[in-house]
């Protein structure tokens, strides 16, 4: 089994707000991230796939195909977007780094042909990142 990781970057804005909470609860739980006008990050995405090396091509995965899928499913949808309003997953779910990693996993998992998705890692900043392995 070989693991292959491809990186990408996207910039997006978001805010954390749960309409089920009172304004005070929203402020207490989400702090600065609750600012109603939103704020943004430069996200770094790392997608790791795993598989056996194809004896003919020597590849775990066709990197060109992986790149295309990441572009189409993630970057086109999230880069330079306001996540809360423009990405369907986040109309009713808070776009935390955890939920962004889960949404990206769900977008990619069905689209990959040869290799299996192993991990989606999303860096919100260099000091904060989330790993999702598709665990229930």
């Amino acid at each position: 089994m070989v693991y292959l990781t491809r990186k990408a970057e996207f910039s997006a804005s978001h805010l954390y707000h749960n309409p089920a909470f009172t304004p005070e609860e929203n402020r207490r739980i989400f702090g600065k991230c609750n600012n109603p006008n939103g704020h943004g990050h430069n996200y770094t995405l790392e997608v790791t796939v795993k598989g056996e090396v194809d004896p003919r091509s020597g590849f775990v995965v066709d990197l060109k195909q992986l790149k295309e899928v990441m572009h189409r499913e993630v970057l086109d949808a999230m880069d330079h977007r306001f996540l809360n309003k423009e990405v369907p997953e986040f109309l009713h779910r808070i776009p935390t780094t955890e939920n962004i990693a889960i949404a990206i996993w769900q977008r990619l998992a069905t689209q990959l042909e040869s290799a299996k998705l192993h991990r989606v890692r999303v860096y919100e900043t260099p000091d904060l990142f989330v790993d999702f392995y598709g665990e229930p």
Binding site: E98, L128, D131
Partner: peptide, 10 residues
């Protein structure tokens, strides 16, 4: 769903 959160401190 289960996720892993990592935070770095200096």
């Amino acid at each position: 769903m289960k996720a892993h959160l990592s935070r770095r401190y200096l």
